[in-house]
């Protein structure tokens, strides 16, 4: 009698626990309640590739002004704020010197033309990205279908481990509210801004690729920047790589950057 009463109480307790846990489980489980009939698709015009890559013909850019259209269009397209305080600067793509872009290629008597040229630097969308390895929440991840290293701003906890891990300094952190560095009238309604306290960087224009457009910087480069599938031997980028001598940033680190430079 005594033991069966104890058993009953135990079972009742377990049942109550189960009922109590249900809403909690429901809250944590992925939201997949839209039913079986709905469908998701990449969109009819989406550009696809196994691994997107970029080839920058640096010979086509001779002075810093030549790079401005690319930088401007990128930052406009993605609502990248402008801050005058150097500490809060956010940049997705910017211009730098040869010895800053390639500090591991310190050749002393490098060709004058190559040394004086301005160089465009951005996220390399590495095949083996250290930032993805470091991120504790998969907020930054390598997209399986096309190799783009993406940021999930909704999930980023702002620990900045990825910034320490990136050997190219490609990542920026929102130290202040980014809207304070944007002009409300000039914002691009097609792309969101970010919130304070998350990390951001170049996304290879994933939102443009989805509707069949090439990245914004590629579009305004007058053909000086090529964009295509690295895994397709007949793609434009592979064609350029076959015919030109190219270098990549810090390739000795084994990250396999996907931005190539013709020098």
């Amino acid at each position: 009698m005594k033991s069966s009463r104890r058993r009953f109480i135990k079972l009742a307790g377990i049942a109550a626990l189960g009922l109590g846990a249900q809403p909690a489980i429901k809250a944590i489980a992925p939201a997949a309640q839209t039913g079986p009939q709905v469908e998701f698709s990449p969109g009819p015009n989406a550009l696809t590739a196994k691994q997107w890559a970029m080839v920058i013909d640096t010979r086509r850019f001779n002075k810093p002004e030549d790079l401005e259209p690319m930088i401007e269009v990128c930052h406009k397209t993605h609502n990248v704020p402008h801050f005058s305080d150097k500490r809060h600067v956010i940049k997705w793509i910017w211009e730098t010197h040869f010895h800053n872009a390639f500090p591991d290629i310190p050749n002393r008597f490098i060709s004058e033309a190559a040394e004086s040229r301005p160089y465009l630097v951005l996220c390399n969308h590495c095949e083996n990205p250290p930032c993805v390895r470091a991120c504790p929440t998969k907020a930054t991840f390598k997209r399986e279908n096309d190799g783009i290293v993406m940021m999930d701003m909704h999930r980023c906890i702002g620990c900045r481990f990825c910034m320490a891990a990136c050997p190219y300094g490609s990542r920026s952190f929102n130290f202040v509210d980014p809207r304070t560095g944007l002009n409300e009238k000039e914002m691009n309604p097609k792309y969101p801004t970010r919130m304070m306290g998350v990390v951001e960087k170049c996304n290879f224009c994933a939102e443009r690729l989805a509707v069949g457009q090439k990245p914004a910087c590629v579009e305004v480069s007058n053909g000086a920047i090529a964009f295509g599938d690295l895994s397709d031997p007949n793609s434009e980028v592979r064609h350029l790589l076959r015919e030109n001598f190219t270098i990549r940033r810090k390739q000795n680190l084994g990250t396999e950057p996907c931005v190539y430079y013709i020098v």
């Binding site: 469908e39 698709s41 701003m153």
Partner: peptide, 13 residues
Amino acid sequence: KVVRGAQRDFTNA
């Protein structure tokens, strides 16, 4: 779906 799944279009029932 958009951010992590590279899906952009939604088709309802």
